[in-house]
């Protein structure tokens, strides 16, 4: 059975290894608000923060471009940094970029690699816990939105989504709807129907 849990709620009287939980006195406790499935012992955050993992794609904005490094705002607990000798890309302040997380270093900075400047367009900020739904299984959801609206879309795991070209407004509407109805079943069909009805 799936059920909505809040921080501090006991998920199991046994110690289990579940993301976003902890074990206290032999019991497994939820640390967030989420949907818990006791069959599969999975806890999917409804509200949650982004914690950087190596290899993840992020979207950011160049805050301070210097000679050797660039500071990147990621709308996250930590700032990003790009060490420029590893790349040939020329970046200036306020550029929107896409990059990959290399590591979270000891000083609390997210080291980024493989930066790519995204020219034009805009960024939408969504809750990072909604990103998996925006992407869909094997990126099916975002592919659907992108194809129907002819917009270029890049989704960062940090909750920033870059949108450019095509029907930007329809793409924005679709993404907002996904975020709002992320935990309501039948989402894929509803989004498909919405896109179809608005496509002309």
């Amino acid at each position: 059975m799936k059920k909505l849990v809040t921080p501090g709620e006991v998920l199991s009287d046994k110690p289990l290894r579940i993301d976003n939980s902890l074990v206290e006195e032999g019991k497994t406790i939820s640390t967030i608000m989420g949907m818990y499935d006791d069959q599969t012992s999975s806890l999917i955050p409804i509200e949650g923060l982004w914690y950087p993992r190596p290899g993840e794609k992020v979207i950011g904005v160049i805050e301070e471009a210097r000679l050797n490094t660039c500071n990147v705002a990621l709308n996250a607990p930590y700032k990003g940094i790009i060490i420029l000798k590893f790349s040939e890309v020329n970046m200036v302040n306020n550029d929107i970029i896409e990059a990959t997380v290399k590591e979270l270093d000891k000083t609390g900075t997210i080291v980024l690699s493989r930066p790519k400047v995204l020219y034009g367009g805009k960024i939408m900020a969504v809750k990072p816990s909604k990103v998996p739904r925006i992407l869909g299984k094997e990126n099916t959801m975002i592919t659907q939105v992108s194809q129907s609206t002819k917009a270029s879309i890049s989704v960062g795991m940090n909750g920033l989504v870059w949108v450019k070209g095509g029907d930007v407004d329809l793409a924005t509407k679709a993404i907002n709807q996904i975020v709002e109805e992320a935990h309501v079943s039948g989402l894929t069909d509803r989004i498909a129907a919405m896109l179809k009805s608005k496509q002309q």
Binding site: P7, G8, I32, M33, S129
Partner: peptide, 12 residues
């Protein structure tokens, strides 16, 4: 407010 923020807590 904290629970709604997604900041992990061991109780509310």
């Amino acid at each position: 407010a904290l629970a709604a923020s997604g900041i992990p807590m061991r109780d509310m």
